[in-house]
Design a protein around this nucleic acid. Structure first.
Lengths: 231, 231
DNA sequence: CGCTAATTGCGATCACCGTTCGCAATTAAG
DNA sequence: CTTAATTGCGAACGGTGATCGCAATTAGCG
């Protein structure tokens, strides 16, 4: 197991110097897994499923990826490459807001992403590039280093959480929504019971009128302002 | 399948009117599952494991719970019962801040909770009671109903995300930390590569000096203020 | 009292999962 | 041309959620 020594995906060379040419690539596998996740949800991304989708045996995938978790890590970093990091505004707050909007778009394109981002931070090169850009946007701000990191982390967290809320109340393509789908009948019964008057009243107002763009911008801007990021 | 008709856990009567007395209870099962999750992490909470821990056969659990997801739902609502909803301050912001602090404590007691809260909202009676209390804290605030709900949702989301960050950088009892454990070597190498100067600089500052209590209070208070909650 | 009908506990089983092992086939280097 | 490393992968292992069918138990009713 010579070339596979590093426990780290990103330190491991993709191609060995000896032996037959690999018939697949890390990138191809990640792309295939990504398509499956986008179409059928993250649970559908099993080793066997991905392997079959690229015409490989199940065990063969382990030549490219050490574990299923590593596959997910690859997927996350691949998607992190969708950021356009050069773009941005003048003031720090504008730049971060821009990044947040991009993040929101990415999470909408890949509905499986938001939960993962909150659970396990990605550490691949693309993710690091994003992090660098975000921290770099704070270079003119007088804040201790760790505070900057915390700010960026909370920014991502807020974005993920907001998108999660959006996806939960969205019609959903039938793949990801299922969570609280069947529990609705109990909800209406509970609300009619009179035990939760304020809740019922709050829900009486019609569903949010679709201007969630401004809501998002407002929340993020507000957080950044409070965190001491000028804009 | 007469009494099991309702697809909803909370609408289903626990005890049937006919037949032998159940040897266990929904509550007992939830408690057992809870202990396992607290001790060994959520992945250890399998149907068989929980069944064995209460001296029951695996298939027997399905007499009390329709699926594994439902078990988790039970766990979440059980833990939601740990809130002290009567306590609270004068102003709306104080009340919500109080709830947020309680939520943070609960998530620290049950490290598996934070990720779940962000992924799937709980809908059990205890969770609804919490929601009612939170929305009720906003009764004097002039805000449309949906906006109040959104505020409360974001409050929970921010709390979960913050706790998640805390737990990630905590020593961890060995059960939940493992996420980005082995990926550290690549991180240091990447930082030394010079490709991420701002990131490296930001990480040079010593780790956050433990005053995360004020950090949390500050972030939440700031968000609430921005959301239009007087305090 | 005894019968009926519903419900419980659960062993066996299915399909699927991540992962490991061993081996034939392939290839670059010496 | 030999050698050593690497690839692809069928088969298997242990564990998962879930279903089925059956014996045992029990409340209500005639």
């Amino acid at each position: 197991m010579a070339a596979h020594d590093p426990t780290d995906v990103w330190r491991r060379p993709e191609r060995a110097t000896v032996g037959p040419k690999p018939e697949h690539s890390r990138n191809g596998i990640a792309t295939a897994a990504l398509r499956i996740a986008d179409d059928e949800g993250l649970p559908a991304v099993s080793i066997r499923r991905v392997a079959a989708s690229i015409g490989a045996g199940a065990a063969s995938l382990y030549r490219y990826v050490k574990s299923h978790d590593e596959l997910v890590e690859l997927m996350m970093d691949t998607v992190a490459g969708e950021y356009h990091l050069e773009a941005g505004g003048e003031h720090p707050r504008e730049k971060l807001l821009n990044l947040a909007h991009q993040g929101r778009d990415i999470m909408h394109r890949h509905p499986w992403l938001a939960p993962l981002l909150l659970t396990r931070p990605s550490m691949g090169p693309n993710s690091l590039r994003y992090l660098e850009a975000a921290v770099s946007a704070l270079s003119t701000v007088d804040l201790p280093g760790p505070a900057k990191l915390q700010t960026v982390a909370m920014l991502s967290a807020i974005t993920s959480a907001f998108v999660q809320n959006e996806l939960a109340s969205a019609p959903g393509s039938g793949a990801v929504d299922g969570a609280a789908a069947g529990r609705v009948p109990y909800l209406v019964e509970a609300l009619h019971s009179g035990d939760y008057p304020h809740l019922a009243a709050a829900m009486a107002g019609q569903a949010h009128s679709g201007h969630s763009d401004e809501q998002f911008a407002g929340i993020v801007a507000n957080y950044l302002a409070g965190a001491g990021v000028p804009g």
